[in-house]
């Protein structure tokens, strides 16, 4: 019964991958339990298997050993039950903003009339309604990413998997988007797994940070982030924020210098 408290439970996941004729151990004995509506960041040196882990949770890939369960139920077939977003906004260039965010509703077979109604509600809630008929190429990078966030949210699953969603944006746009994203989650609570290489971003956005080691990726460190929500920009200067950041950067560099 206790296990059902966890939205996502990852147990002893191992993953090997074939790369240029060699078998690489990418993930090793990953154990991770994520509570309902918790925001967990996964950070680590590049090549540590963060994205692979996310792909496995999404169901795009399968572990060689171990199990994934959602709400206590073992999930062999996970495609279609989690929302997944990448660094590339992947907006379909031939679809308008409205048509892009209604994509998942379409896939689920919801009628056009209903899905337009649902999407319009979200667009106006986040002041994107005047862009609903725009094609993606007419929007700025930050706008496109907002649309991509809304599309991800409208997939309407309890779990959001985000693979460096802020990675392609400039620093200012990114900061604005953090606050926007927090508001989005405030109004539409979800369980979030965020992969990032940016320590500050991880602290600012998450309740808990998981540091993966250099390949083969293992859970090296877990840190709780205790700042109250909703958070504001000024926590970046808070002593706890700074010391946590230094601690994480230290450990990150240890692994990286190897």
């Amino acid at each position: 019964m206790t296990i059902t408290n966890f939205e996502i439970a990852i147990e002893k996941v191992n993953k090997n991958m074939l790369f240029q004729g060699q078998t690489l151990e990418v993930l090793q004995d990953i154990d991770l339990s994520i509570k309902n509506q918790e925001i967990v960041s996964i950070i680590g040196p590049s090549g540590c298997g963060k994205s692979t882990l996310l792909n496995i949770i999404a169901g795009l890939d399968n572990p060689d050993a171990g199990a994934i369960s959602f709400q206590g139920f073992n999930q062999e077939e996970r495609l279609g039950s989690v929302s997944y977003m990448q660094q590339k906004d992947l907006l379909f260039p031939w679809r308008t903003v409205l048509e892009n965010i209604s994509l998942s509703l379409e896939i689920k077979g919801i009628s056009k009339k209903d899905s337009v109604e649902i999407c319009r509600k979200y667009l106006s809630e986040f002041q994107l309604d005047k862009f609903e008929k725009n094609l993606p190429h007419t929007l700025s990078g930050g706008m496109r990413q907002r649309v991509a966030f809304l599309r991800t949210l409208l997939t309407d699953s309890e779990i959001l998997l985000l693979d460096e969603p802020f990675g392609a944006l400039d620093a200012l746009t990114r900061r604005n988007l953090y606050v926007w994203f927090m508001k989005l989650l405030e109004n539409n609570p979800r369980t979030v797994v965020l992969v990032t290489h940016d320590v500050e971003e991880a602290i600012f956005l998450s309740d808990r940070i998981i540091l993966l080691s250099q390949r083969p990726g293992k859970v090296q460190l877990t840190e709780e982030v205790s700042f109250e929500r909703p958070r504001t920009h000024d926590i970046i200067a808070h002593p706890d924020f700074v010391s946590l950041k230094l601690r994480l950067l230290d450990r990150l560099n240890e692994g990286g210098d190897e």
């Binding site: 795009l60 495609l79 279609g80 990448q86």
Partner: peptide, 14 residues
């Protein structure tokens, strides 16, 4: 076709 677009639709259960 963009493989990532395909993966996105797959995660939506397409």
């Amino acid at each position: 076709l963009d493989i990532d677009m395909k993966r996105l639709l797959l995660t939506m259960g397409a």
